[in-house]
């Protein structure tokens, strides 16, 4: 009987997966990480990509993660996944927008229509996700 390791995948919004698995493969920022039971304690940020795992009962499965953090202990792997694609410049844009809203309101102006910027940010995120999915499906074939 092969050894198993506990895998928990959670995002801020909800729990995505929890169970015993034989092996996990996560997209770390430094490269793909294959994790088997009794792996050394490790912590690393993730890049957007595919998280694959082989559950104790059932076929190998995969999840799309758009970033986050993986924490490894000898018998527990925790993936703290981001739900949205987070790029530094997008964060920056959101921060500027929040500031601008406050300044506009302070100046007594109606908040300017910021729809264009939000739409663009969403578009960028969607594009990245599509690219990722295409790459994944190409690898499968």
């Amino acid at each position: 009987m092969a050894m198993t390791i506990r895998l928990d995948v959670v995002s801020a919004e909800k729990k995505l997966f929890s169970g015993m698995v034989y092996e996990v493969s996560v997209p770390g920022v430094m490269g793909e990480l294959g994790i088997y039971p009794r792996h050394a304690q490790l912590i690393s940020p993730l890049r957007p990509g595919e998280l694959r795992y082989k559950p104790e009962n059932g076929d190998a499965a995969s999840l799309f993660v758009s970033g986050g953090i993986v924490e490894v202990q000898p018998y527990v792997v925790t993936v703290l996944a981001d739900t949205a694609i987070r790029a530094d410049d997008l964060d920056e844009k959101a921060a500027i927008e929040a500031k601008k809203r406050a300044e506009d309101a302070l100046a007594g102006k109606d908040p300017e229509d910021l729809n264009y910027e939000t739409l663009q940010a969403e578009l960028e995120a969607a594009k990245a996700q599509i690219e990722m999915l295409q790459r994944i499906s190409k690898n499968r074939r």
């Binding site: 739900t83 987070r86 929040a98």
Partner: peptide
């Protein structure tokens, strides 16, 4: 609410 909607405002304070 989505987390993505909050990050901008939080970032202002963290910065």
């Amino acid at each position: 609410p989505q987390l993505a909607d909050l990050v901008g405002t939080i970032k202002v304070m963290l910065d």
